[in-house]
Design a protein around this nucleic acid. Sequence first.
DNA 1: ACCGCAGATGAAATCGATTACATGCGGGTC
DNA 2: GACCCGCATGTAATCGATTTCATCTGCGGT
Lengths: 344, 344
Amino acid sequence: MAGIKDVAAAAGVSVATVSRALNGHRSVSPDTRERVLEAVGRLGYRPNAVARSLRTDRTRTLGLVIGDVMNPYFTELARFVEEEARARGYSVIIGNADERPELQDHHIRTLLDRRIDGLLVSPADGRSPFAPGTRPPTPPVVLVDRWVPGLDVTVIRAEGASAVRDLVRHLRALGRRRIAVITGPPATTTARERVAAFREAIAAQGLHLPEAYVGEGDFRADSGRRVTEAFLDLPEPPEVVFATDNLMALGALDAIRSRGLRVPEDIGVAAFDDIPWFQHTDPPLTAVAQPVAELARAAVGALTDLIEGRAARSVTLSARLVVRRSCGERPAGPTPTNGPRRSA
Amino acid sequence: MAGIKDVAAAAGVSVATVSRALNGHRSVSPDTRERVLEAVGRLGYRPNAVARSLRTDRTRTLGLVIGDVMNPYFTELARFVEEEARARGYSVIIGNADERPELQDHHIRTLLDRRIDGLLVSPADGRSPFAPGTRPPTPPVVLVDRWVPGLDVTVIRAEGASAVRDLVRHLRALGRRRIAVITGPPATTTARERVAAFREAIAAQGLHLPEAYVGEGDFRADSGRRVTEAFLDLPEPPEVVFATDNLMALGALDAIRSRGLRVPEDIGVAAFDDIPWFQHTDPPLTAVAQPVAELARAAVGALTDLIEGRAARSVTLSARLVVRRSCGERPAGPTPTNGPRRSA
DNA sequence: ACCGCAGATGAAATCGATTACATGCGGGTC
DNA sequence: GACCCGCATGTAATCGATTTCATCTGCGGT
């Protein structure tokens, strides 16, 4: 493979000049630059990013560690993160934690070893993702979506409380009062927040939430099914199941169907995290939608700010309720609470 | 950040010895090794992968370039590829081509610049993914799923022809004779193959395929909707729509529902590429399933073989038909053609 | 007592780029 | 005409590891 030396030889200049010509330095005569570029083209030379990184101590690479690639929410997040990073001249290496803390640690360690310039994490559990032994996480870190309580780093997330309030109000308006919730692993902030928001909203509507209506899942479809089955076995089953994650909502849907019940006639379903698929389920699912693209953009923006020495503040965007048909038909007339609303 | 020199100083040995101790060389006295390891632990030293790669000319990294991350088939493929690679001590960098050839080229270039040890590609179009200027693709390359006709590289894929035959036979057994197909971009081998297999299967069953029953999509949901709408507008609409990709199947489902038609009573739907979501749609979708995990394993296996100097042969696994309910109820009695079948 | 060999270690070259410093040269200023 | 400045370029140090080659030590064989 042709190296910078070959180019230098071919162009009859020194390696320093080649480097300067390629990095757009002033003080390289147009004539020389021309010759260098010609040689580069002729040899098909491409600079070795490894060598360059060693010298400059910058990899122009961001690490992104997410809870689960197979979760469409994260897939979408990853996609937008890469897009925004690319626009800013960075590559992204994705680490899939598969919701396993030790795998998350593995990826973070690997990414740090590769000297990525910055790290974006959506922590799988409540522990600091910087295991002991990982000294001051050298590169800047930004947390997305999920965060870690005592950890003082920039966090980019969406608040869902008001959308959850909207959801409960919407359900109430449809005449549904017995609402059950499937929570995520209590170790994640998102799970705790969503349940808290839900409890509050229930109380605000003057409704009651028996403990039997709170079931713990793990952000996977199977757990949604399991928990929903328990709900259906209750002497007084709920009228709506609210899953705090999209995969668990799917599981809920399965459990309900396998009992021969109909959605929304017999029981309603709602989910946190809206994903393209929800338009295609039958019935289309009512969900709380996070502004994923904006989250991704804000996160990459904050991270690159930190990398390039600027300050970065935490940002909280707002989620919104997307009403579809899985909780029952909307009563006639305009419903002021669920039009598309811009996030902050 | 602590470097190997600091460790050497702390342990009272030379950098060479530290390196040897860490890389498990023989001829390092147990005593010295001990001291080195202690110093490493105390300083929290982690070797700089960039420097190491520069010297050894190996990054222990694989590149994976796929058509579209948001397509669950590829997401799953990526997930298994990473898993298998990790088991073999490699990391994976994913490049999302978004079905755009120029973006694919961008990713391949970037990956080569980073001196990945090997490249896994599922080419977005029929062109060689090695644009002019990219001289002999230095690292070994393996194509997965999709391939490029004149290009002589190892290909790991699944043949769907027999499963498509099974599908058509199945449809026929359910009494459906007018079957339409939504194809992918003709530039991809997979699209061409699938249609060819379908035409053959139709002929083998003595059925007829009018050209109006062949619509071209682009592997995205929207195109599925558009093409299906055209089918439904036909004076004699098809009894079944076969989408040669999962996303387009979703689009088809939407188009059908928005006309108020029922699946499978009014019209059946089948898809190529089975994904977990298809169990949760209503009705669950009948699909041709590729052995994704096996494909991923075989691909990574072949690639690491090449990287480590061994030979690698192309492999063709076989897809199988998964019958669900989207094309009509199975007639009573055992249907021999659709039990779970192992791939080759 | 001497030779040779193996084991343990260190000094220094090396990978391919960037960049601080040095050099040479031409032109403007007084 | 001497001086200085800045442009264009080259020489060589540098980044942090691995690895070749050299050195040293001790021990067994004769």
